[in-house]
Structures are given as structure tokens and as C-alpha cells.
Design a protein around this nucleic acid. Sequence first.
DNA 1: TTGTACGCGTTATCAG
DNA 2: CTGATAACGCGTACAA
Lengths: 351, 351
Amino acid sequence: MGVTVKDVARAAGVSTATVSRALRGFATVDPETRAHILRTAERLDYVGSPAAAALSTGRTRSIGIITPYISRWSFARMLSGIERELRANELDVVLYCLGDPSDPHPAPPLHRLRRRVDGFIVMSVAAESPDLEELFKVEVPVSLIGTSAPGVASVLIDDTAGARTATEHLLSLGHRRIGLIYGRENRDPLVLERPRYLGFVAALEEAGIAPDPALEQAGHFTVEGGEEAMRRLLDADEPPTAVFAMSDEMAFGALRALRDLGREPGLDVALVGFDGHEMADVFGLSTVSQPLESLGSQGARNLVAELAQPGRPREVTVLPTELIVRSSSVGPDGATPRAARRRHGPQDAGR
Amino acid sequence: MGVTVKDVARAAGVSTATVSRALRGFATVDPETRAHILRTAERLDYVGSPAAAALSTGRTRSIGIITPYISRWSFARMLSGIERELRANELDVVLYCLGDPSDPHPAPPLHRLRRRVDGFIVMSVAAESPDLEELFKVEVPVSLIGTSAPGVASVLIDDTAGARTATEHLLSLGHRRIGLIYGRENRDPLVLERPRYLGFVAALEEAGIAPDPALEQAGHFTVEGGEEAMRRLLDADEPPTAVFAMSDEMAFGALRALRDLGREPGLDVALVGFDGHEMADVFGLSTVSQPLESLGSQGARNLVAELAQPGRPREVTVLPTELIVRSSSVGPDGATPRAARRRHGPQDAGR
DNA sequence: TTGTACGCGTTATCAG
DNA sequence: CTGATAACGCGTACAA
């Protein structure tokens, strides 16, 4: 179909072995010969066949990305970071989208994919998930983002600490009835839900407040879901005076519910989201911001390192989150200045 | 490294050729032998090598996606639609992100990629772009989304009609000074900018209004950019009473500028965006909505069809847009009901 | 219906 | 430093 090493070898008057060596920059090739071969290859417009190379070496120079979502804001941002980093390392990106973990879906054909890629980057999928069952059976480089598992490289944020900080912020404003908008019904929650829930509860209990199931509503990580959750919360006999939403997208929906009901965010009901969505500022939404691109690129770097040096010690990196206080929690004229920020990094993650 | 056809053949007591035929469901295999082979393969946990198959057949069963962005909302949505459709056809997705066309960047190594995939889906990149130069030199199946080129399958919306409809809507509300927030400086604009601009100007001129360069500001397709553009517009000697923004993300920024300046959207300044962003409703933003997932999946289907039947007539599909009127253009108590909608599909695209 | 044997384009080994 | 040659794992004429 195309021009092959053989053609280049013939045209350059050398063997295919030498062509291969020259093209891959081996030091054991006479500089003059190499130059000649390079020119010949260029002239013939030679392009190597990745399939043949893969068959011969066993390496594909591409990486599989396993993710539950592509278009959710936070996932798209992480994907972007991953793609940039892998491309910089001349690795191709093979995308595999699982779909919502709570929805019924066929298990991903990881055995098939496994032969297509040199390693996997897995985003926010619990290591114990049946989706990944096959993955850990085989010997294959894996880098985790947003989760961790024993003996596997991973990069994540301290979800528990982030949620705790958000809740403590609401408590410090004097709120005692604090509602929660979480994601999915409990069946098979996204991996980030549990730690965020634990942080929320821990902050409450430290303040001597018992968690109240009536104040917890599912928002399905969508704008609409968040809106409905907020309506249900406000419909209660004793509605909360403050709400923590596990994602900014749900918090946006909650804001809409507040607006439609004529309540002023930060005055009538305080609200804090999670993610650091680029539009949170537009809404004046307080949020726990996380470094999404960095999560992606660091996760990619972990895999690249593992590929270069298999069996090296696996790193677990915890990236810092940051509470950004805006008018949705302190009101337009809140005593806390708009720019008030409290950092929450790995250094005090254990608090 | 792994178990191969040879192993299966030996274990099943047949030849590798028969194994290959059985595994791929050829009719010319005795049902009993096939069942036996399938069981043996299952038992040995056999997985075919895509590299070997690709080398042998010349087909890779994967598709390259060329896109300027991953995490911009509209692109992420289209990507999602593409991925779902390709996966349903058992094609793998290889993602290649170009980066902003206006920023300096190296040309994509399409010659290299070309051997990795069976075809390309190109999103919102002008066919004349130097980035694609190599692509059209080679004989390779291509499906375009958001652009079109002679003799190439493509799916897009009528950007001109969409922009015209938005502008006509503002004109019909009585506005005469209408501002524009476009994307990038003119050097190497995104492919969608030109037709949207033409639609904007056409509507103005039909109403007897000459376009005023002072009323056109770049917003770089970001929230921040949109905010700054709106500030510049309002700083003018004769500020516009209405503004059309080429993307919802820029419109959100514009809304923030209005809020910060104490102007009421829809009352003081009317605003219409473009995309149908999921958060437009939260903001009460009027917008020209486009079916992003459908653009993606239809683009994927076009490529699949081309792969199945090379040289078949290439389709150009124009999907409808829809003007959704909200309070940002008619005010909170606008005469136009909130749900007012006007469709703008292929049928009246020429209007 | 099944088996034999060759080709796909590289890389790696080993001898020169 | 270079060349011949054997893998790599699968698909497929062709023969049986």
C-alpha cells in the first residue's frame, strides 16, 4: 500500500536493518549513511507502520483512557490535561467512555483494549468496580486519577478534606441545619462521593450536629438534578439554612431553584459547591476548587514514568484543593471579603 | 507474550486457518467445530492481536478524531456523541487535539496518524487550514463536522441562518444599535466564525443598518473574554442596546459584566448567545441552540458508512438550530413568553 | 469443510 | 558499523 523500509533500503543501497537503525537514531550508524538514509526516506515520503512495529516490539505507543464521562466539565478538563501530556510524549490517546457507573452497561472489553495499548489511565472509577476487574488480573501499567489502590500509581485530591472545609465554612457562618446535595442514589456511587460524604459528616459531628437523612438529596451530578434536589430540601418541614453540593453543576441548578423561589443565595440560604467550575465566579458561587488539568497531566506523567521504568515505586500524589468564598455563602455584603480563601493541601490533609 | 491462534488451534486440534474463520463467524465452518473452537478460545482466554490483524488486513478498526479543543463545552458534547457511535460500531477512538487554531502550533503529524487509523473525523477545522493540508493529499476516508468541503461527507448547522435569526430577533424587539462579540482576532478564525458573522451582517443590512466596527469586540470564546468584550462595548460613546455573542460561554461573561455594572439583561441590554449551553437556562440566557450530540453521532455514522462502502456518494447534512428566547433578550416580564421558540432548519435555511 | 503456506512491515539477533 | 534472516500473530489464496 505504502512505501516500506524495504523500498527505502533499496533506494539508499543499504539493508532494511540499517534503515531501521538510522530512522530510530541509533548511535551505531555511520553519520554519513544515516544522513543519506534520512534524505532518501524523506524523498520517498516514507512513513513507518505502527502495526508492524507493534507486532515486532510488543509496544503500541498508545495509551487507553478509561473514564465514566467525556463531556462533564471536570472530566473534560482532566482529559485535556492528559491528552496534552501524552502527546508531548508521542503517545497516542485511545478514549474509552464507560458511561455512568450507576446505569446498567456492559463491562468494557479490557482484554481486547489491553492489546491495543501499552497502559491505562483510569479516571474516577473505583478500583473494586467490576468494570476494572479484568484490568488488575493482567500485568499492565495503570495510572489512577481520582482514586487510589494499593500498589498503583495515583493522583487525587483529598475529597474528604475538601468537603469538610466547605462544611466547616458553612458552620463558621453560624449555620446549624446544613443540607447536602449528593450525586447518585447509593447503589454504585461514583468513587468521589463516599469521601466527600465522610468529610461532610465529620465536620457536622465535630460541631456536635447529627447528620439528618431528611437533609440529604440526590442531584445526579446534573444541573436539573441539583435544582430538583434543592426544591425538595426547601420543601421540608424544617428546611436547611445552608447547603453543600458535591458538584458545581448541581450547585448551579440549586441556584436556579433559589432564584425561582425568590430566595437570595448567601442571605436566605448559603450554598457551596465543589470543582471550581469556570462559571462559578459568574454565579457568585462559593466552591471547593480542584486543579483538574494538573490531575490529568500528573496522571499521564505517572504512566509515562511507569512505562519508562517498569516496577519503579508507585507514587500517590495528593493535589491541594482551595475553598473559594463568594456571595453564595456570605451574601453580597458579607463580612468575609469576596477574595477570602483558605487552602487545603496535602500538608494538612490529616486534620 | 499471550496466547495466539496457534495455541488455540493446537488445543482444539484444528488448523490456525479454521480458528481464524471460526472466530470471525464465517459461514463456511462446521457448526460443531466452531462451537468447539469458541469454547477452546474462551478456555484459553484467547485475545486477538489488533496489531497483527492490522498488519495483515490493512485495517486498524480505529478512527482518528481531529479537534481544536477537548474541554470547550460544545466540543466535549460532540466528542461524546462521536465516541458513543464509534464504540457501537466497535471502532476505537484515537483523539488528537490541535489546540486553538489562532495560536502557533506545530502541524499535526497526519502522515503518522494516517497509518494508525482507518479514517478521520475532523471537527470545526477549515478544510483549507494548513493543519489539514496533508490529509487531503492522501486517499483516506474523512468525515467533517461543522465544516464542509467539496466531495467530502459532512454534517453541520447553518451558522449563517442561526446568527441571522438571533439578530433578527433583537431587531424585532426594536433594537437598532446591536453589538457583536465574536471569537478570535481575524488572523485565522475558527471555521464557524465567518458564517455567523455573515448572518449577523445580513440581518442588519436587511433592516437598513450599516455594520459598525466599533460595535464588534473579540471575546476569544471564553467567559473572561466575553466579559471584557461586553465592558468595552458598554464603554463606547454610543453603547449598543443589544448584543449578539457567538458562543454561550462568551455570553455568560457578558452577563457577568452586565451584573457588575448594575444593568439588567433584557431590560437595559438585550443579549443572545449561541450553542444552547446546558446552563443558559440557569442564567435566563437567550440562545441559538444546536444539536451537538447529533452532530457528533451523525458525523461518526458518515465515516462508518464510508468505511463500509468506499466511494459511495458523500452526504452533506444540515441539522436544525433553534432560537430559544429567555429573559436576557425580552426581560423578566417580556411580552414574549419564556417558552417562545422559532425553529430554523434546513428547510428554510435559504431564507 | 478444512489445512498449507505465504505475506503483511518492522525489529532484533547474530554473524561478519 | 552493516547485512542476512528469523521472529511477531494473523488473514487468506489455494489446494485438498
